[in-house]
Design a binder for these strands. Structure first.
Lengths: 240, 240
DNA sequence: CGCGGTTTCAAACACGCGTTTCAATCAAGT
DNA sequence: ACTTGATTGAAACGCGTGTTTGAAACCGCG
């Protein structure tokens, strides 16, 4: 049957003016995000979500209509939250492009892997990436595309216009792919690598160093890997 | 209650000597693989699987015990099948290392993306990679590790021993990551790229060309991308 | 206070899930 | 042909799912 979703019309007990940590709608979104991220759409149950949120089971119907729409809203909520948490880096005029690339890669890895445990928001977005649903388009346009375009512009600056747009995008995807693997297939990567190296897989710094050196070398903006031993991304200016 | 799984003991109607396309155990494994690949473990239902396999619902209990064990067996079955379908490339003595790299990357992309539709076996394995269950260890040791080691050895040959093992593995992961992205995040990549370029994302050849050139350049075994215009991986031997 | 709206709650609903049951059917061994 | 154990089949079971219900609690306002 057709039925409205929480639609206040003026008088009565207004919910929209409440402490956001108390607001059941907000609590549902957060609990749902965590649960969906961990167990997936089918694996998560609205009962568990409501239990975790400390609200009654009927609340999801009241605020969102059904599980499906709760899921979509929780994805949007997660990516907006994440956007607030980790803003794009911003460089002063004249920052060299290789420095920007290094920062960008480090930033992206930090966003993906987190500094401690990977944030549930990213797990949720990852699910959307791997198996897009209705929530995906917004995710791409609001979240991924800006970062992607920024990366392309950095690479363009790095090559000083010597690469066509098409090629720049391919290079950007090469950079993203290198980072993406550690997040999406982290467990398997950990099994392929000797035990001693396993910890370094969760350290954005070291990974960023490698990926940046690898990419710069490929673009001819740094020495090839076999020679580049202890290269720093931005060497001291020679004193002469 | 405790109950045995299809355990023939000598006399009676023996099933093990039957046309493999008729054998219900085999049919269940294939149908289950397809269904799990498409819908995930929770999303797939035993009923649908049995319907697709054309067997009675009790068969999964009879042959595998329960859904969980059917899932694990279907993953193993899928990766063994895939292993038979796409063998590792084998080169004659003296094949140059850059040629090997190019072949390896092309082979891996072909395995991941398929030539037409991506094979369901890979979708199933992808799920295991992203969220490992008990079936994952076997997958890694039997399927991924051999390919990984082969890639490392090619890269070692390419660098003529100038890179340490640790670094070689990082480079190998860079190569794999570049390929992996197109498979795991293909839909999102398609949304980030202009419509006209979208088709090329499903063409292993072109992707392999880019990834190989990118990697060779990074290793100093090829010209940097901005200069490498129409490089061929293995140029004609100069006639002088 | 008492009205009108919003929000919460416990309980129940219908349904589809994985699994089990048990009799019927089959094919080899004797 | 009869026995025996392996295999199949239709039906049912118990449970957990997402969702709905209808009344109670709540709050701002006249």
């Amino acid at each position: 049957m057709i039925q409205r979703i929480s639609q206040k019309t003026g008088t009565g007990r207004e919910a929209s003016t409440r402490d956001p940590v108390e607001d059941p709608r907000e609590r549902l979104l957060r609990a749902a995000g965590r649960e969906f991220a961990e167990r997936g759409y089918e694996g998560a149950t609205v009962r568990d979500i409501c239990l975790a949120a400390g609200v009654n089971g009927a609340a999801v119907n009241y605020y969102f209509g059904d599980k499906q729409r709760l899921y979509i809203e929780s994805v949007k909520h997660a990516h907006q939250e994440r956007l607030r948490q980790v803003p794009e880096p911003d460089w002063p005029e004249g920052t060299p492009a290789n420095r920007k690339l290094r920062d960008f890669v480090g930033n992206m890895l930090e966003r993906m892997l987190g500094l401690g445990q990977p944030p549930w928001q990213v797990s949720l977005m990852l699910r959307e990436v791997l198996q897009p649903t209705d929530a995906c388009r917004e995710l791409v346009e609001d979240y991924f595309r800006p970062h992607f375009e920024l990366l392309v512009s950095i690479l363009d600056e790095l090559c000083q216009g010597r690469l066509a747009e098409t090629e720049l995008r391919r290079v950007a995807l090469s950079v993203i792919g290198q980072c993406f693997l550690y997040r999406a297939a982290g467990d398997v990567v950990g099994m392929l690598v000797p035990a001693g190296e396993r910890e370094s897989l969760h350290m954005p710094r070291q990974l960023a160093d490698h990926i940046t050196r690898f990419t710069l070398a490929a673009l001819g903006a740094g020495r090839p890997l076999p020679a580049a031993g202890q290269d720093t991304i931005v060497p001291e200016a020679p004193s002469a």
